[in-house]
């Protein structure tokens, strides 16, 4: 069942378009991640959904009701900010209780107390209620911010790169924990990040945002298996992309030769891109002649950059090390054709 529906949002800043008809749907209890480079407008889309910014065009619906004209504080949407924005003049308890106090004006004090305790326990901060938020560690502050956003039980919880400031190990641990918590309470969530690993770890579905639109949305696996276009492929780190001309016999002509190609999704343009995955290239004595330019050990496998005689540059993944400068032959096992 669809919970949030974002339809054709347009927003520009001082004449420069930032979002061009961005659309998105989130099902109830689903975690969707907006993934895109910085400057792609993902934070702006989040702020528009929260009501902190107004779109120039487009509509947002929640459970079928349009949110246009509903002020921020009445939308019932929670948000965790990049810089956390914990209230420095309030302790942990007061921070977490804030949303509860705002929503239910006559909520009995005992009820608020119980809800705060329950939420703090959920995020692993039982016993922290009386602490000063300014004296907590980075990870603890993240948890307080999460508890504060969770406590009023919003219909939708949004995250704006909430783990950006943490180091990698702590971040990986928190992402896993965050997903577990959201799933346990069945929260509908929209999560913004520019980090692919983080997105894949937390999301049910990932929406890749490019040039003001959602370029592709799907499960992490769907997206990785069948990137919708060259931008998505590049963003996922698949950089072996070559302009391809699709012939009527379904073979593709490229700089590296002509190949039988698979097309993971329908292509409506004869000028497309050939994607060669790094693990689909075999190195031997025969095949396309190339020179090894770089070779580094990447834990378990080697990653090499090779350049063919006509200047095509490929990144490949292999079992054994290659000598830099050596001449090798490349056999390309499969080629996928995607939109340019």
């Amino acid at each position: 069942m669809i919970a949030l529906q974002v339809r054709d949002i347009v927003k520009s800043f001082d004449g420069a378009p930032l979002l061009r008809e961005a659309s998105l749907e989130i099902a109830r209890s689903e975690i969707v991640c907006l993934l895109g480079p910085s400057g792609s407008g993902k934070t702006t889309l989040l702020r528009i959904i929260a009501g902190l910014e107004q779109p120039e065009r487009g509509e947002i619906f929640f459970d079928g009701h349009a949110l246009r004209g509903v002020p921020v504080h009445q939308r019932g949407i929670g948000m965790m900010f990049q810089d956390l924005a914990l209230f420095p003049h309030q302790n942990v308890f007061e921070n977490v209780a804030f949303g509860l106090r705002m929503h239910a004006t006559r909520a009995p004090r005992d009820e608020i107390r119980a809800r705060v305790a329950e939420t703090l326990e959920l995020v692993g901060l039982a016993g922290f209620a009386g602490r000063d938020v300014n004296n907590l560690s980075g990870g603890e502050q993240q948890r307080v911010a999460l508890a504060r956003a969770l406590a009023p039980r919003p219909k939708l919880l949004m995250f704006d790169e909430p783990l950006g400031a943490l180091d990698r190990i702590l971040r990986e641990q928190l992402v896993a924990e965050l997903r577990a918590i959201l799933k346990r309470i069945g929260m509908t969530a929209l999560y913004v990040t520019h980090d692919q690993d983080e997105a894949f770890a937390i999301a049910d579905r990932v929406a890749i945002i490019h040039a003001g639109r959602v370029a592709q949305i799907g499960t992490p696996e769907e997206i990785y298996r069948a990137p919708a276009n060259a931008f998505v492929a590049r963003f996922l780190g698949l950089t072996n992309l070559f302009p391809a001309h699709l012939r009527y016999d379904a073979r593709a002509e490229t700089q590296l030769g002509t190949f039988d190609a698979t097309t993971p999704r329908p292509i409506n343009n004869l000028m497309a891109m050939a994607l060669i995955r790094p693990d689909r290239v075999r190195v031997g004595a025969r095949g396309i002649a190339a020179r090894v330019e770089e070779c580094t050990f990447r834990g378990g496998k080697y990653r090499a950059v090779v350049v063919t005689e006509n200047g095509a540059r490929l990144t490949i993944e292999i079992e054994r090390a290659l000598t830099v400068g050596a001449r090798v032959g490349l056999e390309i096992e499969s080629v996928e054709i995607i939109s340019a």
């Binding site: 902190l52 921020v72 504080h73 948000m79 804030f98 705002m102 929503h103 504060r148």
Partner: peptide, 9 residues
């Protein structure tokens, strides 16, 4: 903004 999102007018 955080206060607004949490429901404060």
């Amino acid at each position: 903004e955080a206060a607004q999102v949490l429901g404060a007018s």
